[in-house]
Computed example of a mutant assay.
Amino acid sequence: MLTKAVPEQQDWNALTDEDFRAIFRDWVDQNCPAHLRFMRKQRPVFDEVAEWYHALARKGWLSPVWPQEHGGMGLNAAKHIVYVEEWARLGCPRIPDHGIGLTGPLLIEFGTEAQKDFFLPRILSGEHVWCQGYSEPNAGSDLASLRTSAVRDGDEFVINGQKIWTTLAHCANWILLLARTDKEAAKPQNGITVLLVDLTSPGVVVRTIPNLREEADFCEVFFDNVRVPAKNVVGEVNAGWALAKAVLGHERIFLGAPSRPEYALTRLEMLAEDRGAFDDPAFRSRFAKLRLDLYDLGSAFERFAKVLREGGTLGADVSVLKLFCTELYQRITEETLAVAGEEARYYDDLPLGDGGHVDAMNLFLDARAPAIFGGSNEIQRNILAKAVLGLPSR
């Protein structure tokens, strides 16, 4: 319950977390369209969620961590965690968010005034929809080995190369691109530059890659002598590696947020009750372990969140959160298929006796991806081994 009335525009960080949570939840309940809640599709394209995107923009709540002078909410880490938690709990659809979460913060911190004036309003209006051009066929987890090149030619750079696993590139019109501008640099990280590239430029080809659920949310993007104005370089030439890492900030914690396994465990419980699985002592034991693991994940998440709330910085040990979360999510969805039995082969939602449904196979397939994106779980284990345990590379 709110302890005081709040004006439309204000310092949200001055509120208690409970008051901010109540305000955000109430507004979402009234403004997020019902047909977009808990969407089966995890990464909808812009047109599918445009009404929600524009509703957030009109409210001024589209960009939670941008400063208010740039049209954001100016949330600190603690309030941002509340924002994300309630977003997931209320089933808000994911919006194409590379402009909000990546390009915008990068420009706010490192961009020129001209870049901020041009690009930031167009992100908020939805005129520019962004994607992230980082990974390449031979440069995924080892991103520093990227080979897409950008060669200076007067007031332009000429780009050649390929990006892959570029999420939602087929519905984007701009890409935040990492390209190699110095092939002779002593360290490969030192020869990389960040460029803002218009995907409607001649020489750009985007091809979709269907995922396990036959949704086209991944793409490969080809650049064939694509000319980009030099004014679209962000920061300094050859200094893009530091910029690419800088925008991650405290958002790394959200790769281990318990929202996905929480939702999956709820669906498992619904299916188990409907199918009588709780009559089996062995299942009750497995379910209890999953629920206890979820409690442990929530406690671990809260431990890292507390660091941010107190103004601290997350260390390499936050990688354990992603490992715990993604592997728990997979175990829950595997158990859901076991309860579904022969029906597990169906991709369509499984009907329940009370008129509800459970998206068993959809969740199982969705659980495969989080262990790969955002730095694969193998990479997270290497980080923990080297940076936390101090183990040698060989």
Score class of each variant (00 low, 15 high):
D19L: 04
P188A: 03
N382Q: 15
P7C: 00
S201H: 07
Q162L: 12
A144V: 04
E113C: 07
R331G: 03
H170A: 14
G235V: 01
V6L: 08
A371F: 09
K187L: 09
V205S: 07
L102I: 08
L292T: 14
W66G: 09
V6Y: 12
L56A: 00
L143A: 08
V158G: 08
E214N: 06
K116M: 05
R40V: 04
F119G: 05
K163Q: 11
A172N: 05
G154V: 00
F304Y: 11
E8C: 08
G72V: 05
L255T: 14
K245N: 13
L106V: 11
A264V: 01
P33A: 00
G312A: 04
N31I: 13
L196W: 02
L106F: 01
R345N: 03
F218L: 14
R58C: 15
E214C: 00
V247W: 15
C219E: 14
E51A: 00
L363G: 13
T166S: 09
A78G: 12
G154W: 03
E214L: 02
L168R: 10
Y134K: 03
K4G: 08
V84Q: 10
G72I: 01
E335A: 02
R345C: 13
K4R: 10
H250M: 12
R58H: 08
R227N: 15
D359T: 05
E236V: 00
A88V: 08
K163A: 12
F157C: 06
P351Q: 06
M39A: 05
W52Y: 15
R381N: 15
L337V: 00
L168D: 14
A264D: 10
D97V: 02
L384Q: 08
W12A: 05
D217V: 03
K59D: 14
P210H: 09
Q42Y: 09
H35L: 09
R368L: 13
A344G: 02
E127D: 15
E156T: 15
Q9G: 09
A57C: 11
G126R: 08
L290F: 08
T208R: 13
H128Q: 11
A272Y: 13
V6M: 10
S145Y: 11
R207F: 00
E310H: 06
E302T: 10
Q162I: 11
V388R: 07
N232G: 00
E342C: 00
H35S: 13
E136T: 03
E342H: 02
F24P: 07
L168W: 12
A288P: 14
G249Q: 08
N13Q: 10
L124V: 12
D279L: 04
Y329K: 02
G341I: 06
R122M: 15
C131N: 02
T326L: 04
D19K: 08
I192A: 03
R147K: 15
E334D: 10
N362G: 15
L212W: 08
W52R: 03
N13K: 08
A344T: 03
E48V: 06
V65R: 07
I100P: 14
A277V: 09
I100N: 11
E113T: 00
R303T: 13
L352C: 11
R152K: 14
P96C: 05
P261V: 01
R368C: 07
P229W: 06
E214G: 01
N225D: 10
L255F: 05
G390R: 00
N362L: 07
K163I: 05
C171A: 12
